[in-house]
Design a protein around this nucleic acid. Sequence first.
RNA 1: GCCGGGGUGGCGGAAUGGUAGACGCGCACGACUCAAAAUCGUGUAAGGUUACACUUGUGGAGGUUCAAGUCCUCUCCUCGGCACCA
Length: 826
Amino acid sequence: MKYEHQLIEKKWQMKWDTESLYSAADMKDIENPFYNLFMFPYPSAEGLHAGHAFSSTGSDIYGRFMRMHGKTVFQPMGYDSFGIHSENYAIKVGQTPQFMLSRTTKHFEEQLRSLGHGYDWKRTVTTSDPDYYKWTQWLFTLCFKAGLAYRKEAKVNWCPSCKTVLSDEQVIDGKCERCGTVVERKDLTQWFLSITKYADRLLNNLENIEWPSKIKQAQKQWIGKGEGLEIKFSNIAVWTTYWETIFGATFLVVSPEYLLSKLAPDVSVESIRYAEHALEKSADERRTNRKKTGENTGLTVLNPATKDQIPVYVADYVIEGVGTGAVMGVPAHDSRDFEFAKKFNLPIVPVVSYANSEINQSIKKNERSSEEPGALTNSGDFNGLSSNGEGKDAVRKWLVEQRLAEPQTNYHLRDWLISRQRYWGAPIPMVFCETCAQKGDGEVKSGTWNAAGWYTVSEENLPVLLPEITDYKPKGEGKGPLANHKEFYETVCPKCGEKAERETDVMDTFVDSSWYYLRYPTVGLSNSSEVPFDLEVTKKWLPVDLYFGGAEHSVLHLLYARFMNQVLFDQKKVSFEEPFPHLYAHGLMIKDGAKMSKSKGNVVNPDEYITKFGADTLRLYIMFLGPMDGSPDFRDTGIEGMQRFTNRVWDLLNDVNRGVSKKDVSAIVSKMHQTVKKVTDDINVFHYNTAISGLMEFVNELKDSEIGDDKETWKEALKTLTTLLAPFTPHLTEEVWREVLNESGSVHTAPWPMHDESKIIPDQIVVAVQINGKLRGQIEISKEESENEEKVTLKAKVDEQVAKWLEDKSIRKTIYVKGKIVNFVV
RNA sequence: GCCGGGGUGGCGGAAUGGUAGACGCGCACGACUCAAAAUCGUGUAAGGUUACACUUGUGGAGGUUCAAGUCCUCUCCUCGGCACCA
């Protein structure tokens, strides 16, 4: 009987649906909850590709594994449907985003169903749905009321192609994360969320969550906490983490911004001209210009440690926003300063030694080397000091005691810019009233920015609906398309009732995705339109038990979501700080050695493989390619090999009435228990490729066994194999379980098999024999014999292959590793 | 430059310090067939041999150990993150 994958897969997908196998009737009344979350995709028009199939299958296998462990698994799916990606595509094909959406989500659902994933389709989330973004807006108002949302004019990242601003996190190598265009800098007034206030907590909590270290590392690096000193050089403060090099600071450099805003007009005309010119450069141009250009300002300042007057320069290698925007130039210990000093003929003074006992003396004597700075020729030569920890501490103490410096902590993390001058997003739910602004009235009084005139839209008036307009394309004038629609922005002030205007920018998509995991369990509850998330159900299901997703979200989504959750925690809306205590980051599937992308034309659509080979074979194949956290290469040849395996398994499992001969029973029982252990252990750590190889070995063992009378062992082996395979091949095993083995209920709720440690070791064991660590022979012993070291070593000694190596040699030492190895040292 | 992964057959990849290359792909040969496909069987690290024996072998150089792909030191290459971050 041939395995008809098309019929069987469709049959069970429909049946699971009618049986609600993957959907709890009542989210509040369940036991052993396990929230198995997969990062939701944005519903692209192309549909999902093999990379999605790879990652979502990885998540699904774990969910099924947990379900068979008696957990009630909640595995929802939704769509991150707002955002530039979806909107850009709609523009390209000349449709509205709304129109595109209805087709794309439907296509996604069909594809995900055809892969056999056990999603709860009754509880989905679509971020562009008013029922959803109502609460995204509510979240923004919550931040505003907590003093965590503010407006500020700032030099921001502007993508000239997407015609919107971007957050720092969305600029990769100076380019737009979405379209790859070089971003420009633009002065705009924008909404920010104060994520920097959470920098320390975001950093410290990393200790307590079970995440891959590389993701933690990336977040740590992005937060970039630097504990340094702020040191006054006359009226200019510099910030440094290398304060011990201050004795070698022979000049000072300020950024162009610093010069123009704080030092002009007391500086040279040339330096002002230089600074103005530098500001016209794009961020990318400035970033990649490694030439140390600059200009003398004519000012001098006092080096507080050496008491020397040193010149002040302006140069664009100093960046506004890092530290104070001014740095001390220590050419002997910093390669950039060195290059600069060479160019401008500034003195290069190495700071020599701070050996602990002489520290005070050294400092007082202001010890300097008489060596020529010519020794410092390459940029790698600037260490030596930073490694001297004790000296460094002594200098710090001295500087602070002398009141020359103050401790100051700086972060790389910036506040999150969430305004987007686009159409396809959640409108920022704010109203500005000019009348109130004149009087200084506003919803919050804030010291950090002038909030006068700004009001949140109250909860009963949410959502602020995104109007359906046809002229939704961005124009690039610094305002979003909604600014052209009076009917949208004209409103009245909630305070004084005068004419007022709505904010016309929309929110960054990452705000939408920063809280979606909270919404899922509440979908479908009677109060779901009254609350963002029901308290009882949230308490039951959250935090997420396993979050499965791509490493590319290390510092975007994963940081924002943690931040939002912590805000909600502080506002007493949730009882946990970290939403994802356990994260698994899968790798990226590639094709022919390159990342799958439309532009390369190497995107693999799983549909044709499902049609040709079936979902189960595809699932096995992509999981077998390599480890889940690697970058497997999708190749067509391998899948045919997996189809052979699927067919072999099908034939084997249908051969229910055969038995196994007495002589092979022990080997089969042992292999069965080994396989149970191996597959269980491997799934626990997401090593699906080796779990599958273990299953293949078990299948080979069964196929090669001699036919005999022992039907009970055979039947048990088949049953075990079926359950172990179930997470990987849900359709085939379900067919076998219910129709061939005639078991009651679904295989996916059947109990996961347990292994018996005592049955793992077979009756006959092969032990390797080594002489001086080199393999010289093998002996076969029984299980009982393996316990007896003397017996084993004797048997090894007299083995024909081994004996000839022992002739004329005396054995100095014998090592026996039970049931594994005998090593004679001669 | 800093921080993290990795370097193992023709390929994807396995190996709690204990028989390196599991499992699979590919390839070769054989069976079945008029023939092919499919399927099944055998072989497949390199050198060596009719076949065995044996020798070498996990990027390179040292070291620890009865025993090293695995641990330590140095070094080369590669992939990912951050970066004129002071």
